[in-house]
Amino acid sequence: MKREVPLFITFFVGTLLIASVFIPPAESWGENFSVYFDIIAVFAFFLGGGNLLRIHLQKVASKRPDWGYSIVTLVAFLVMLAAGLFKLGNPGGISGNLTTAQSWFQILFQNIMSPLGSTMYALLAFFVASASYRAFRAKNRDATILLVAAFIILLGRTPFGTMLTSWIPPQYDLLQVPNLAIWIMSGPNLAGQRAIMIGIGLGIVSMSLRILLGIERTYLGDDR
């Protein structure tokens, strides 16, 4: 029951989805199983929320270090949950659009979640700059190639690159930095990314087969 049933479910669902591509009348099976998948995915979000509650409640109950911050997480979670589930402030009522501009859910998103999320990633600008100064060295031939390519892209993606090399005559315009940047992207970058993509693609296909055939079972965990 613990291993055989899950292995059968995996094989059955996966094979059915593959078959639905080759058998046109079976197309709707694939669609239906995708809808079921989407519904289960929502339960996975609930599981994530439940887990978050459990972990932070345990932290508060046992007064572990920084337990005060867990209260912040719990309060934020419950306030947003109430705003979303009860559609607080929503002019359309229970059947209205959840993200109407006047709804509390949207107001909290715009003024708390949005600035926090975008600033966290914006911080990386500082660290990328610091890394450029401290670690981006032409130590050998490979590193030099990487550095030169990055330099051309950085210059070519700004109007400054155009200003610097706009004097180059049209018959040699590939040597203008913006054009060189475009060429790097659609030539060598494309080739390198394609080589990586083919490798990853083959990896995913073979891993999918291993999972469907029950050779790969790590997702089941152990039996303890």
């Binding site: 989407d38 519904i39 995915a41 929502v42 979000f45 609930f46 994530g48 929320g49 978050l52 920084d66 911050y69 867990s70 912040v72 997480t73 719990l74 309060v75 934020a76 979670f77 419950l78 306030v79 947003m80 949950l81 705003a83 979303g84 589930l85 959840l98 859910f105 909290l108 998103f109 708390i112 979640m113 926090l116 999320g117 966290m120």
Partner: peptide, 25 residues
């Protein structure tokens, strides 16, 4: 920073739950 970080975790977990509940369930 820690306050803001923990606030983000709580808000975003509830955000994804509510969105998926209303849209799919």
């Amino acid at each position: 920073y820690k306050f803001a970080e923990h606030l983000f975790v709580g808000i975003s977990a509830a955000f994804w739950m509510c969105q998926s509940f209303w849209s799919t369930i």
